[in-house]
Structure formats: structure tokens, C-alpha cells
Design a protein around this nucleic acid. Structure first.
Length: 569
RNA sequence: GCUGGUGUAGCUCAAUGGUAGAGCAUCUGAUUUGUAAUCAGGAGGUUGCGGGUUCAAAUCCCAUCGCCAGCUCCA
């Protein structure tokens, strides 16, 4: 354990000590998991705990620090430990002890507080220089919804006041990068309008440009990679979802049915049944496979209100979705190609760091164990082929098959699933789709579900935070801004604007009567990649002065400028 | 959904039971500007929505909706 973690860990026990002193009937639950950022302690209290109570607890923590108490370590036999914690009626500690198999357990003591703990700890409480309790939230005992609800009190410990201040500064910086804040300064989207409904987003013009540029890029690269695009409706008869199995497995996460002509229809939570139906439109030969059907499909899922989060978690979002129908023998190559395409796309946006997980069979599943085993193996092989590190997320697969997820981090280092690649041996059976194999016999194809950005909304949300609003030239809603120095330069500025527009660039002339320095400042805060300045000198020399976002200057005539801009795209 | 917060002008925030205010943005006028802020003036509000307490509510209470952090969930 690093010294910082030891400090943090000790502070978390100080927190428990202070809570017990302040509220003697507190039941101690679990403390932070090893790699948690900061510390927390989960406790059960009769009293309702509010933020103002945190101040009281902090005060008690500081009082205990001022007593300069030492931590003492000793081992107890398992039995002795149980009777010790029974004596003070710490029922959750007894439950934890019951899960520990060894004969002796490690106990730490500090003042009249003792706790079950592996350690290590700092020697003396006075080594804790700075800390801050951050929030109260609820959590379930053993993270299980069926169990009792505990309070989770979270905080951070710091070796010095400077560390505390730089942490607060970091939070401040992250807040500035937050896509929800940048959205209002740059008019990107509106994802929180109560009149429209929670979790439903409107792309404002600037955000819409970014999205459509990305769509164009994706469309092109998918066509190059052998995909064909289809379009499907936003609602479908409930029978479709009964056939696919979604109704049975995910009814609670779907928007409730609406009645049309005495039939029930639901909003689509996924695109796959449509693509499967599209595959079924023709009789296929093994020679046609793989068939790759793609769609930027908007789906609607009922997410719990508490989980909605800007663009990163919505109830309506558009996936860059695709379903690949192939033979069993084609799986490995397809998976490799999909991962390779995913990596190409992520790289295009500058993402080199991400986390890869394989999610395995969940409790509720369809298909046979043998099928799941083969599917999980294929996924591992494909990841290893690309030399990617991965972790296993046990039981988190879709009901119809295991999956590979690629996760990206937001500005607060929270992970969000973006790319997902799912193997499915089952839906071909449910929908009874098939192709004619080499031997002239009907055979069910394998279906691979995949989305590479995941959703445009989530991906662009992460992208906004990654770039902190300073989009690269090819994505910037306003790529070029032309600033005239005075009124007599307007017509030349307009003619440059027109030339650049005809070349396909997103360009605006900013004609307001302001000093140049003010216009430059605006362009800089608007994070415009290229600023052109037009004055007497430019007109007489038939050149433009260029200011880049990093404040460096260039000067060139219009044809060279066009060539220069083209190579930026 | 759970726990704790929070909601005031387009944005960021102030006003602790007694006349809703500032900065930025916007609009108007003057200024005609050479690489991060020219000056002056105007407009902008059912304090999320609905109840209640009070002579009086942005402020206190209840309910509801949205948002934030964390938990649970995430096909």
C-alpha cells in the first residue's frame, strides 16, 4: 500500500471512531475498497444524517487528531473476535467475520476504538494533516439491493494543506471540462429540458454539426469496410420484441406499450430485431456471408431517473449500430476486423487509452452452456490477436451472448462503455433466419452485434471533455473566423468568406465594430481553430494574416491557405 | 429507484421573512480600431411548477418536476 493510501485508510478509521463517539449506537458496515479514490465508511444510523452533521463529525475527527493517539495492532482468534464484536453488538462486523475462514483475524485499536482491519496504518493520528468529508450517500449492505440501506460517508485525506488545495483546484478544472457546462458556453446540446422530458436530448446547431461530421466520417469508413446501411422505424409491434426475447428479459427497461388499431406497439430499445428482419427479406447463400447491416439507429430505454447524466446516460440515444451475419468459421476473422475498425476510429479521435472488458454469462441467459463457452473463447482470442489488455466482468453479458466492451474515461476519470461487440448464437434461432450452406442445407447464421462509438451522444460527451471544447479543425463547428479591422475591409473579408465556403469550410465573418484585440479575445474564448485577419496590408498584398488557436501567426495568399486548410481536415 | 444536496435574468452568481440585484452575453448609440476585453445607455424576472403558514415568502412547511454527487442499475 502506498503512503498516500495508508494515510487515507487510517483517516477512514478515524472517521468511524468519530462517528461512534458522536452517535454511539452506530453500526459499522464496510470501509472503502482498496483502489477507491479517497475513502468512505458505510454505517447504519437510526438518525437521519444530513450535510450539517458532517461538520460535527469533522470537528470530532479533528479533536481526536489533537489527542495524538497511536494505532495498535493485535491478532485475535476468530472466536474471540466474534465475541468481542458481539459484546458491542456490531452485527455487520460479525457477518464479515463469518465470511473469513482463517483462525485468527487482525484488529487495530486506537484510543477506545477498535476495528477489524488488515492494515497497515499510520503510527499516530497526528500524521493526518488535512482531510475533508465530501458527501453522504446511500449504499446497500454488501452492495445488494435486497439488503439494508446504509449511509456511505465519503472523504479524502491529504498529506498537506497544499495537497488539499491542489485537489480542490483539480475538481474546479474538471468542472470546467464537464461537457454539460461546455454545452451551454458553446451551444452544443440541451439534454435537460423538463418540458421535453428527462433523458431526452436536442442537438443545438453547433452540436449537430459535430454529430453530422462524425456521421459522415463513420458512414464512409463503414462502406469501405463492407457494411451496408439500412433504416428502420422507431416503434414496432410488441410481437417483434416478444420474438426477440427483449419483452421477457427487459420489459421494465422499455417505454410502456401504446395501443394502435387494437395492437400494442413499443419504442425500440435496440435495433437488432429490425436488422434480423432485414436479413430475412431474402434467401441467402453461404457465398453472400458475411452480411453486415449498419444503421445509426435511435433507441429509447427507460433508465432510472437517478442514473441520467448529461449526454453520457440518456433515455433516447443513437447508436452507430451494426449486425453481422456470418458462418461459424468466419467469427474469428470478423471479430478481429471489428476490433481493428474500432481501434482505427478511436485513434482518429485521439483516444489511445481505454479499458477493455469481456463480460461473461449472466444469471438470466438463453442458449446452451457449450455455446457460451465457445463465444467467450472467440472473444478472448480476438482481443489477444490485437495484444490488448482486458479484464473479465463476470456475469455482465447480454442475455443472448457475451461481449467485449471498450470503455473511455470522462473528465472525472469515470469509465463509460463506448464500443461494444456482442456475440449472439441465439437470435438466429428465435427469428428462424438461415442461409443455404455449401451442402445445400439450411443453416442458422451467427449474429455479431456491434456499436463502435456506442452512441453518438455518449461518445461526443466524452469527446467534448477530452478536448475541453477545443475541437480539432475537422470537427470544430466554426472552423474559421474572419476578423476585419475596420469597415473598409468588409467586402474583402466577405469575398474570402465566400471562397472558403465554396471550398466546403465552415467559416464566419465577424463584422462587429470592436477593436481587433476584443475580437481576437472572443475568437480565443470561443476556441476557434483558425482566425483570419483582414486589414489594409492584407488587401494591398492580397494575403491573409492567420492566427492559430495556440496564438502563433502565419501569413499566406488565398490559394496556399486553401491547401493549408485542406491538409488540416 | 435509494441517500444527501440543489433550482433566482440567456450564462455565472448575490439578496437569511420586509421594494428581486450584479458581472458577462444580448440590444441601441457613439467609436473605425493590427493579434486576449473602447465608452455610454436600454431591455431582460409568475425566484422550476402547485399548495400551505404569515400582515408580508426567493427565503419557512408540504407535495411535485428537473438537475448534481454517490449507490443500485445499464440489452
Amino acid at each position: 500500500m502506498s503512503s498516500k493510501n495508508i494515510l487515507s485508510h487510517s483517516c477512514e478509521h478515524l472517521l468511524a471512531y468519530a462517528i461512534l463517539n458522536t452517535y454511539p449506537h452506530t453500526l459499522l458496515g464496510t470501509d472503502s475498497k482498496p483502489h477507491h479514490n479517497g475513502f468512505y465508511y458505510e454505517v447504519r444510523l437510526e438518525k437521519q444524517l444530513t450535510t450539517s452533521d458532517l461538520t460535527e463529525i469533522e470537528k470530532e475527527m479533528r479533536r481526536l487528531i489533537s489527542l495524538s493517539l497511536n494505532f495498535y495492532h493485535f491478532d485475535l482468534r476468530h472466536k474471540e473476535a466474534i465475541s468481542l464484536f458481539s459484546l458491542c453488538k456490531q452485527i455487520y462486523k460479525i457477518e464479515i467475520l463469518k465470511d473469513i475462514k482463517s483462525n485468527s483475524v487482525s484488529i487495530y485499536k486506537c484510543g477506545n476504538y477498535f476495528d477489524l482491519c488488515r492494515g497497515p496504518h499510520i503510527k499516530n493520528l497526528n500524521q493526518i494533516k488535512e482531510f475533508k468529508l465530501l458527501n453522504i450517500s446511500s449504499s446497500y449492505w454488501k452492495s445488494n439491493k435486497q439488503n439494508a440501506i446504509l449511509y456511505r460517508i465519503a472523504g479524502m485525506a491529504f498529506p498537506s494543506i497544499n495537497d488539499l488545495n491542489s485537489y480542490l483546484k483539480l475538481l474546479e478544472e474538471s468542472k470546467k471540462r464537464d461537457h454539460r457546462n461546455l454545452a451551454s458556453s458553446f451551444d452544443l446540446f440541451s439534454a435537460s429540458n423538463p418540458l421535453i422530458g428527462a433523458g431526452l436530448n436536442i442537438w443545438l446547431p453547433n452540436g449537430a454539426i459535430i454529430r453530422s461530421v462524425i456521421e459522415d466520417y463513420l458512414k464512409k469508413i463503414h462502406l469501405l469496410n463492407g457494411y451496408n446501411f439500412v433504416y428502420s422505424p422507431h416503434i414496432a409491434s410488441i410481437d417483434l420484441w416478444k420474438t426477440s426475447g427483449h419483452w421477457a428479459y427487459y420489459k421494465d427497461s422499455m417505454y410502456p406499450p401504446m395501443c394502435v388499431d387494437k395492437s400494442s406497439y413499443v419504442l425500440k430499445p435496440m435495433n437488432c430485431p429490425f436488422h434480423i428482419t432485414a436479413f430475412k427479406a431474402h434467401q441467402h447463400s453461404y457465398r453472400d456471408l458475411p452480411i453486415r447491416l449498419a444503421e445509426f439507429g435511435t433507441v429509447y430505454r427507460y433508465e432510472l431517473p437517478g442514473v441520467l447524466h448529461g449526454l453520457l446516460r440518456l433515455r433516447g440515444f443513437t447508436q452507430d449500430d451494426s449486425h453481422i451475419f456470418c458462418e461459424f468459421s468466419q467469427i474469428d476473422l470478423e471479430l478481429r476486423n471489428i476490433i481493428s475498425l474500432a481501434l482505427t476510429i478511436l485513434k482518429k479521435f485521439g483516444f489511445c487509452k481505454f479499458e477493455v472488458t469481456i463480460s461473461t454469462r449472466p444469471d438470466k441467459y438463453i442458449g446452451t452452456l457449450k455455446q457460451w463457452e465457445i463465444a467467450e473463447d472467440s472473444l478472448k482470442k480476438a482481443i489477444l490477436y490485437h495484444n490488448l489488455k482486458y479484464s473479465i466482468d463476470i456475469g455482465n453479458g447480454a442475455f443472448y451472448g457475451p461481449k467485449i466492451d471498450i470503455k473511455l474515461k470522462d473528465s472525472l476519470n469515470r469509465l463509460w462503455q463506448c464500443s461494444t461487440i456482442q456475440l449472439d448464437f441465439i437470435n438466429a434461432l428465435q427469428f428462424d433466419i438461415n442461409f443455404i450452406n455449401k451442402h445445400g442445407k439450411l443453416e442458422h447464421p451467427i449474429i455479431i452485434h456491434r456499436a463502435l462509438l456506442g452512441s453518438f451522444e455518449r461518445f461526443i460527451g466524452i469527446l467534448i471533455e477530452e478536448y475541453a471544447g477545443a475541437f480539432p479543425f475537422w470537427l470544430a463547428p466554426e472552423q474559421i473566423r474572419i476578423l476585419n479591422i475596420s469597415e473598409k475591409h468588409i467586402s474583402f473579408s466577405k469575398s474570402i468568406e465566400s471562397i472558403l465556403k465554396h471550398e466546403g469550410f465552415r467559416v464566419k465573418t465577424f463584422l462587429k465594430n470592436e477593436p481587433l484585440s476584443a475580437k481576437i479575445r472572443n475568437a480565443q474564448t470561443d476556441k476557434i481553430p483558425i482566425v483570419l485577419i483582414i486589414g489594409d496590408k492584407e488587401i494591398s498584398e492580397k494575403q491573409v494574416a492567420i492566427r492559430l488557436r495556440n496564438s502563433s501567426h502565419l501569413s499566406m495568399e488565398i490559394n496556399s491557405l486553401i491547401a493549408y486548410l485542406k491538409q488540416l481536415e
